[in-house]
Amino acid sequence: MRTIRPSQLNQSFQPQSNAWQKLFKEFCVYIRSQNYASSHGESYITYALEFVLYAERNSRRSIGSVDGETLNKYMEYLESRPNQRSGALLSVGTIATHRACVGMLFDYAYTSGMIAYTVPFPKLIRPERSIRTILSIEEIRSLFAVCRDPRDTAILSLAYGCGLRRNEMRHLDTGDVQTHNRILYVREGKGRKYRSIPLSNAVISNLKHYERNYRPRLLQSRMDAVAEPAYLLNAQGYRLAGNHIYETITELAQHTGSPEIIEKNVTPHLLRHSIATHLIERGAPMTWVQAFLGHANPDSTHIYTKTRKYQPHLLA
């Protein structure tokens, strides 16, 4: 059987049968109406199309003719298909996303009345997650100690003290950071989810110093400075790019001169992992940490309990 590669899934590769064409066209409209991040939605469509083409090549002329054996063989196909970019086999996570997209296709067909029932899916066996690397409290303090200016300190406070993702920091506006109310609002979270984050005394102090003593200086070169809503600014007084935020954190790790810190490849996401683990070690409820991080799935938060044993003194 010919291997279907993601890079080949373009307009020239479309379903041939009328039944598949109708289903896939409607499914595309449905996915694009669900307010997914654009890249995610298009990936779901691509993965669903790969399954449709596979089914057609195996003489399944409609979704109603797909049985459990077809799904089992499709999973075997995914497990043996190489990644187009790296040449390595697909990761378990990628295969799980493929499987979920096929499930979405079946669910849509069922709710639309195209099929009377859905077919049971084969179980996906996930390997045990490896323990995540994190920074210790002392290593976090070392990062703060080498900050070059109040903006560096603010970025660290947002990444570690608030557990923000890089893109969440980039999209922060001045109205989102309310130090007087001890709260920060994330309006552009992953999956376009909204959440609020309580601010600690240390974070409030660092952010106020940036707001009062450094951000106004960054605005001085702009004629329309008053109208700039972005919270984190570059040297020209405009919204700080995500790459700049990333580079700031990696550079601070280098400036510590600590081989242990440098070896851990410090990124905004590593700081996010670190605060999550430190909160759980201190005894924060799992549901609270889940809300703090903006995790939709509790399993995403549960992995932090495997990093270390409970050590309540770490954040004292």
Rank of each mutant, 00 (worst) to 15 (best):
S205N: 08
D173A: 07
T118K: 13
E128W: 00
G93W: 04
R141Y: 11
G93T: 10
I95M: 14
P198C: 06
R187C: 00
A159R: 00
T111K: 15
I125T: 14
R85W: 07
A100M: 12
Y160C: 01
G93P: 06
S200V: 01
D176K: 03
R141D: 13
I131R: 13
L143W: 11
P82K: 04
I137Q: 13
Y160P: 00
Y185I: 04
I131F: 09
S112Y: 07
R81K: 13
D176N: 14
G87D: 08
A154S: 07
S157P: 07
S130I: 00
C101W: 01
H98E: 09
H180F: 11
R151G: 03
I204T: 12
S112C: 11
S157G: 14
R165G: 01
R129G: 09
L124Q: 10
I183T: 12
A109Q: 09
Y160L: 01
L164G: 03
E139Q: 15
I155K: 01
A96K: 12
S196L: 02
F106I: 07
I115C: 03
L124N: 08
V186E: 04
Q84V: 05
A202G: 10
R129W: 00
S157N: 04
P127K: 12
S200K: 08
R170A: 00
A202F: 13
R187I: 00
R151D: 08
E188V: 04
D176Y: 07
P198Q: 08
D176E: 05
L158Y: 02
L156G: 03
L164W: 05
Q84W: 03
T111P: 02
R85H: 10
G161N: 06
T94R: 09
Y108F: 15
A145V: 01
N201I: 11
T133C: 04
D173W: 07
H98K: 13
L90T: 06
P82F: 10
A154H: 06
I95C: 09
T111H: 13
M114C: 00
D107C: 08
E138P: 00
S112H: 10
A154M: 05
N181Q: 13
L105P: 09
N167Q: 13
N181T: 03
A202N: 15
Y194E: 15
L156K: 01
T133R: 12
D107A: 14
K190A: 05
R148L: 08
T97N: 14
R182N: 11
S136F: 06
A154F: 02
I197H: 11
G163W: 08
Y108S: 05
A116Y: 04
D173P: 09
I137D: 08
Y117K: 09
G103P: 10
S80D: 12
I197Q: 12
I125V: 14
E188Q: 14
T111M: 13
R195M: 09
Q178R: 15
H171I: 00
V146Y: 11
H180D: 15
H180S: 14
K123Y: 06
Q84A: 10
S112I: 02
I204S: 04
S80V: 03
L156D: 04
L156C: 02
S86N: 05
N83D: 15
L184G: 02
S136N: 07
L143V: 06
A96H: 12
